[in-house]
Simulated assay, not measured.
Amino acid sequence: MRVRHDTLHAIFDGVYVALMSNLLLVLGCLPLVAALFTTETARSWPLYALLAPLCAPGVCGVFAVMSAYSSGRSTAVLRTFGRTWRATGRRAVLWGAGVSAVLVVLGVDARWAWGHRVGALTLPLLAMLGILTVATGLLGLVTLAERPAARLRDVARACAYLAVRRWYLTAMSLLVLALLAQLVTARPALALGLAAAPLLYVVWANSRSCLRVALDPAPQPA
């Protein structure tokens, strides 16, 4: 009976953390979510690029909730999210703005090269740079969630290096993100209400494993 009670308690805690994480993610990304539901995607991408950086502190907050729950089964979701949102707000927005700006430049360059001879050479390179930018941006948000005071220059250097070095973890995280984006497009209520937290947990776990060498201090010799 004791085992059964502990199991049920753990299940309810996990469901509570997941549902609250979904709610806080929506609230943290509310401007972008509202734009996605009220505008035409093909024509409104400049608006999305402007609004996306505002979501960065909220994503950091959700990652911090997942980290706290994974390490100590903490269910203090609101307190953890609020503390991380305040601690990372400015740096996370700057980080998101930088990532968004790079992606816009790469997208404009790719649009210009499309249909030209030079595109045969430049488009694969631009695509690779775009993937690396997304991967670096994702790892940076995970880093800021745990190290809010880290210098963005150091974060960019370390995350870009580890995204390439541990490409298999990066690839899995990007595939899960692509699945989440597809779900948001096709079934937004299901994606944001139920699927976001489990999928983002997979992304966070992969990213945390990728960043372990940078975030976890090396053991000191006795």
Rank of each mutant, 00 (worst) to 15 (best):
Y16I: 12
P221G: 03
A56H: 00
L174R: 10
G61L: 07
L25A: 14
G58Q: 07
L169S: 05
L199I: 12
A56F: 00
V104Q: 01
F63L: 13
G107F: 08
G96D: 02
C55I: 02
V203N: 10
A156R: 13
H9K: 15
A222T: 12
S173W: 07
G130H: 09
V17P: 06
V93P: 01
P46I: 03
L180T: 05
L78A: 15
L174A: 12
G119M: 01
L190C: 09
A64W: 03
E146A: 14
V65P: 05
G115S: 04
A49S: 10
S44T: 09
D109H: 03
V93I: 14
F12T: 14
L125V: 13
R212Y: 03
P148D: 09
A178V: 13
S44P: 01
P57W: 12
L27H: 08
Q220V: 14
M20L: 15
W85H: 09
M66V: 07
L169I: 03
S70C: 04
L129D: 04
A163M: 11
S67A: 15
D6N: 10
S74F: 03
T39R: 13
W45M: 05
R4A: 15
L78P: 05
V142W: 08
Y69K: 04
R208N: 10
A113C: 11
